[in-house]
Design a protein around this nucleic acid. Structure first.
Lengths: 183, 183
DNA sequence: ACCTGAACACCGTTCAAGT
DNA sequence: ACCTGAACACCGTTCAAGT
């Protein structure tokens, strides 16, 4: 008869590790995720995780990548500015929901850069639809991404539902600036 | 005969504490500032600092406030958009120079909010000069401040001299958007 | 191949004690 | 009034040892 522990203890893998890490940091804040607590949450020796993940920084990067995987591209048949608005609202929601994780990921710029490279492609394509010079679209995408990061880190009230109107107005201001640049 | 220690050990005060904290975090990165290292740098028991500063979070806020004190207002006789450009370049330089401190300060949004309230006033006034609706200027200032924060945290190469051209172009895009909003 | 446990070099903060 | 030092409850990471 197998012992009936609370968790059946399948062998550890990166997927279950990042899932547990995400749960910890979302519920207990930036200081809530430690390698030791993570081991405890997985029902495993604190150091077992090191056999699957190099170190804490890599763990953060992998967990961020997992979160960004849920970011869906906006409908490409929409007007470009509506695509930008939609993408920004979605990305903001994701980053505010996982604010502590985003904060940790931003300790090393390379992490967020690499992790978000895939996620920002739909945004770049939407902006390209505005008719800006080739290569300028990714610079304008960075403007939006950086703004969302700064906004999300400064926000204090976890408005998880609809994005606050100031946020959408600011995105509107940037869109207006992009339009001016496209002509 | 007074003992000639390396530092004459005037009694501790907040000013010398934040000066030492700034030096530590600027030189040794985000993990370089600990209450214990700070005590050592001041030639004092690690716990002596707690008699002048509530805790580490307060220390960060006080150090950030000290840094923001060096932010000078742009010449108000300049055109409003040049004032905005100047302020953004100055603020970016400050925040990139003290990136680790800025990062630490952003852990608690209230810290950066409170500390920067004074520093952003010249920016708000410059934007008001664009002729936007009353009350809208501070929202647009937040857009710029949040962008600078996001940009500074993502930057990887410590370009300390002139702001990189992409940054100034992005500020230009926001200015264009503000112009559209003012009409 | 994967997990364990002791060990190392750190943290922030509290509190009773000293001057 | 200000500083000290021991103590508490933590960290990330290394490494030899176990299965």
């Amino acid at each position: 008869m197998p012992k009936r522990s609370s968790s059946p203890r399948r062998p550890l893998d990166v997927d279950s590790i990042t899932a547990a890490a995400l749960h910890l940091i979302d519920h207990d804040g930036p200081g809530g995720l430690s390698m030791r607590k993570l081991g405890a949450a997985l029902g495993v020796d604190p150091m077992a995780v090191y056999h699957h993940v190099d170190n804490r920084e890599t763990l953060i990067a992998l967990t961020m990548a997992r979160v960004l995987h849920d970011l869906s591209a906006p409908d490409p048949s929409l007007p470009w500015d509506d695509q930008v608005r939609r993408w920004a609202a979605d990305y903001r929601a994701l980053v505010v929901t996982h604010r502590a994780l985003t904060y940790e990921a931003m300790r090393s710029p390379a992490t967020v850069e690499l992790a978000s490279a895939e996620g920002t492609r739909p945004l770049v394509e939407a902006i390209a639809g505005a008719g800006v010079a080739a290569g300028e679209a990714s610079e304008l995408a960075d403007l939006i991404v950086d703004y969302v990061h700064g906004h999300a880190l400064a926000v204090t009230d976890d408005s998880l539902g609809e994005p606050p109107p100031e946020f959408m107005r600011s995105i509107g201001t940037i869109i207006e600036g992009i339009r001016g640049r496209a002509i």
